[in-house]
Every structure is written in structure tokens, then in C-alpha cells.
């Protein structure tokens, strides 16, 4: 029983990481109706920027705030410079663009900061949470931040003018333009926000997985899975999906014999595909009704 509790708690802690990243995935999906394969590399790059700023002598929070600003501007710039000119190109070409961006960011980060593993400080400290042996302060912090970001995003999309405009621009671009929304800037804003959320996720993940150019590979896979599992149209669903994937992954590797670290990912993915076959729009996603 104690083992079970331990594994579930550990799963929730890793799940929170996936949840943070999944929020960034949902954010960009809301803005461009597509998964961005370079999302993880963008987050990695932001985290390196934060690390560099700290190396130059900034305190954690100063570096963090500056990184958020840089990431936001960087995200907007990426959209304006690289993806806006491709607006009329087929969607599959955008996917090729994401792959190209992935290769560029990974390679540039590798050359600038090399591939050695770097320590990244935690803003919450690494001692036990409330004296507990099971979960560290940092892990509890990630869970807290995941929920804080979730409520902020929920409020943003639900109650602010600009959040509503963003959703409108994504789901009905033509009608949105007719009521006076500048849809092109909405897409850029979505990129900027996704990039900033990715930066938060990256900074939180780095103390756990350590900082290096390939740090996001595995995390991004799980967070895609989490976002799709929860429903790409629902920020809450993506966080829930993140926790489910985290816990499930941990339980499978503990209790199912013969499943080592190697089969963990395939089994988690198989679960997700099964869920999708039964519920094609994710656990909490809206069913999109298509007009014929």
C-alpha cells in the first residue's frame, strides 16, 4: 500500500511536468489549430536563456521575468518571420516548418551552450515538502504552478476580451475578421503566449531532468499525449491528462512485470490510443461538429 501511495505521488509529480508543457501545447493549438513539434525545443531554448542570464549575475526571479519577456517576443517574432509568410501554404508544409525549427533550435543551442548536462536551481528548494519524504518542495511547487497557470489560462480564455478574440480567431477566422478582430496578430499572440508558457515549463522541468539541448524530447512526447488525451480544446483536460499520463506511466513500470523504462513510453502511448479510439476528441474535449 505504501508503495502504491509512493508511486502515485511520484507519478503526480512527473505528471505536473507534463501538465505544464501540455498547457503550452493547448495554447498553441487554440491559436493555430495544430500541434507544434518544435514546442519542446522552444522551451529548452528559453530555459537556456534563463540559465545564461543567471550566469551573468541576475537573481533567479529577475532572470525568470526577463526570460518570459524574451520568450514572448521570440514567439511572436517566430510567427511573424517564419510562419506568417506560410499562411496560405498547405498545413502539412507547416509541419515541415516545425521540423525545420526543431532542427535549428536544437543545433544552435548545442553549439552555443554545448551538450554537457547543467544544473539548474529550483526556486522552491529541494527538501521534503512539509517534512514529507515522499514529495519534494520543488515537486509540490510544480504542481502548484501547473494549477495556477491553469486557472490563469482558464480566466484568460473565458473572461478577457483578448482571450475570447483569440479563440474566435482560431475557430472562425472569417467571422472573427468581420467583427473587427485582427486575426493575424491573434495567431502571433498565441505563439508568444505558448512560448512564454513553455518557458515557465522549461524552467520548472530543468531542475528535475537537468539542462541540456535534448532535455525536452521525452517530455514533449508525454505532454502531446497528455494534451491529446485530455482534449486539445480544454486547458483543464490537458492538465488532467498530464497527471493521468504521469501516474499511469509510474504504475505500469512498477506493477507490470517485464516493463522496464524501455516499454514505458510505448505502453503509455498505447493507452492513449485506446482512449482515443473510444473517445475520439479526448476525455474533456469538445466534439467538433462539422457542417456538411
Amino acid at each position: 500500500m505504501e508503495l502504491l501511495t509512493n508511486q502515485i505521488l511520484a507519478g503526480l509529480a512527473t505528471g505536473a511536468i507534463y501538465a505544464c508543457m501540455a498547457l503550452a501545447v493547448v495554447m498553441i493549438y487554440q491559436a493555430i489549430n495544430h500541434l507544434n513539434f518544435a514546442q519542446g525545443e522552444m522551451a529548452m531554448f528559453s530555459t537556456f536563456i534563463a540559465w545564461q542570464l543567471m550566469q551573468w549575475g541576475l537573481g533567479f526571479w529577475g532572470a525568470f521575468a526577463l526570460t518570459l519577456v524574451i520568450s514572448f517576443i521570440g514567439g511572436v517574432a517566430l510567427e511573424r518571420l517564419l510562419f506568417n509568410p506560410l499562411t496560405n501554404a498547405p498545413v502539412l508544409v507547416h509541419v515541415a516548418g516545425f521540423i525545420a525549427l526543431f532542427a535549428i533550435l536544437n543545433s544552435v543551442a548545442g553549439l552555443t551552450w554545448d551538450f554537457t548536462i547543467k544544473q539548474f536551481p529550483s526556486p522552491f528548494g529541494s527538501t521534503g515538502f512539509l517534512g514529507s519524504q515522499l514529495i519534494s518542495k520543488h515537486q509540490a511547487g510544480i504542481i502548484g504552478v501547473a494549477f495556477a497557470m491553469l486557472s490563469l489560462l482558464y480566466g484568460f480564455f473565458r473572461f478577457t476580451r483578448i482571450g475570447l478574440a483569440l479563440r474566435a480567431a482560431a475557430s472562425q477566422p472569417e467571422s472573427a475578421r468581420l467583427v473587427g478582430i485582427d486575426t493575424r496578430w491573434m495567431v502571433a499572440l498565441g505563439w508568444g503566449m505558448a512560448s512564454a508558457i513553455g518557458a515557465i515549463a522549461g524552467v520548472l522541468i530543468a531542475p528535475v531532468v537537468f539542462l541540456e539541448p535534448n532535455m525536452m524530447g521525452g517530455v514533449l512526447l508525454y505532454s502531446f499525449a497528455a494534451a491529446v488525451l485530455g482534449g486539445l480544446s480544454s486547458p483543464f483536460g490537458s492538465v488532467l491528462g498530464g497527471f493521468i499520463v504521469g501516474v499511469f506511466e509510474n504504475l505500469v513500470s512498477t506493477y507490470v512485470p517485464g516493463v522496464g523504462t524501455e516499454l514505458k513510453l510505448p505502453i503509455a502511448l498505447a493507452l492513449i490510443v485506446t482512449v482515443l479510439v473510444i473517445r475520439p476528441s479526448g476525455l474533456l474535449g469538445r466534439v467538433v461538429v462539422k457542417r456538411v
Binding site: 506560410l86 501554404a89 498547405p90 508544409v93 515541415a96 525545420a100 525549427l101 532542427a103 535549428i104 543545433s107
Partner: peptide, 21 residues
């Protein structure tokens, strides 16, 4: 050699910019 991934990405971008189809 160090930036081969970036060069590949830039070439790929150039191709899809010039020839989206």
C-alpha cells in the same frame, strides 16, 4: 559540422518558402 542541424533547418525553410507545393 557543429551547426549541421541548423543548416538543414534553414535549407528546409528556404525550400518550403520558395516552393510550398
Amino acid at each position: 559540422k557543429g551547426l549541421s542541424g541548423a543548416v538543414f533547418g534553414v535549407i528546409l525553410f528556404a525550400v518550403i518558402f520558395a516552393l510550398p507545393h
